[in-house]
Simulated scan of single mutants.
Amino acid sequence: MKTFIEPRFTSEIFARRILDVPPDATIVDWAEKMVVAGFQSESLYVLLGELPPFNKPEIDDLLARVQVELNLPEIRSREQALEIVATAHARRLVQSEGESARTLRALSQLYADEGQAECLLQFYLLYYAKEDLGTEKQQHYWPSAHRGNINDVIHDYCQKWLAEHPFEEWREYEWSGSAEGLPR
């Protein structure tokens, strides 16, 4: 049985590196998508051959070389990296019009792991609002959210987030059209 690998955006791959997230199979999947999309880099080709277990220093070195070879933008701060990761999750959620629980759980966990990063607070609150509404008739995390509209509230907030966090400088380096048609 083949394991599903959630595709990562280029900006997200580099943001996760800044956040010191250990490399996983999504790095190789991303490199393959980049090459198929026409990006050319010796280090991307090397990444294609990587197998688990991944050596973090080696992967970090390869990603640093990819960044130079493709002239990718630099992430200037840890907060910007968090915003990029949140933007990637919001894009996937808006695209799929579904799996908000997994997206919000991931961002809620990142909020906690990063010492309650202010930029992720609203995702944290939405996660717990949705959780409570799964078992209760009301919640106290998000004003006006209830069982009948929680998915719309989440979708609308993600749309708003995407409009406020466009990261235009990364647009030309994303591997697919999956980011097209979404507010940036």
Rank of each mutant, 00 (worst) to 15 (best):
A81C: 08
A86E: 06
Y124Q: 15
H89P: 00
E172K: 15
I75S: 12
S176F: 01
F167C: 13
E79D: 14
K130S: 03
Y173T: 09
E69V: 09
H89M: 06
R78E: 10
T103H: 11
E97K: 15
E169C: 09
V94H: 01
S96E: 07
L72D: 12
H146K: 13
Y128N: 14
L121C: 08
E83A: 07
S144G: 09
A112I: 11
Y111L: 10
Q138M: 04
I75W: 12
N151C: 14
E168P: 07
L82P: 03
L104C: 02
N149W: 07
A101F: 00
L72H: 14
L104V: 00
Q138N: 05
H146W: 13
Y111W: 15
Q139P: 11
Q67D: 05
V66T: 05
L121F: 07
N151L: 15
W175I: 00
L162P: 02
E99M: 05
E174S: 11
Y173W: 15
Y111G: 12
Q122T: 14
S176Y: 01
P143M: 06
I84V: 13
T87D: 08
L70P: 06
R171Y: 08
A145F: 01
S176H: 00
E118Q: 06
G148Q: 13
E174Q: 08
L110E: 10
A117M: 00
E79L: 08
E79Y: 05
N149P: 01
G134A: 10
V153K: 13
K130C: 01
L133N: 01
E164G: 00
Y157E: 02
R92P: 01
T103W: 03
S108K: 05
H155V: 04
Y124E: 07
H146N: 15
E83Y: 00
D156H: 10
Q138K: 13
Q159I: 13
Q109M: 00
Y141H: 15
E174D: 07
L133T: 01
Q139G: 13
L72K: 14
S108D: 09
N71D: 14
W161N: 11
Y127Q: 05
K130Y: 02
E83D: 07
Y124W: 15
H165K: 11
V85G: 01
E79H: 12
K160S: 03
Y127T: 02
L72C: 09
H165I: 11
L93M: 15
G115R: 12
H89V: 11
E97D: 13
L125H: 13
V66S: 05
I84D: 10
P143Y: 12
R78I: 00
V66Y: 03
Q159E: 14
A129D: 03
A90N: 11
G115Y: 12
A112L: 09
S176A: 01
L82K: 05
Y128H: 15
P166K: 02
A163H: 05
A101K: 00
V68M: 03
E69I: 08
E131R: 13
A81T: 04
D156P: 02
Q67Y: 06
A129L: 01
E168Y: 14
E169H: 05
K137R: 05
L126Y: 04
R76W: 06
L125T: 11
E172V: 12
L72M: 10
W175N: 00
L125Y: 14
P73E: 10
L70Q: 15
Y173E: 08
L107Y: 14
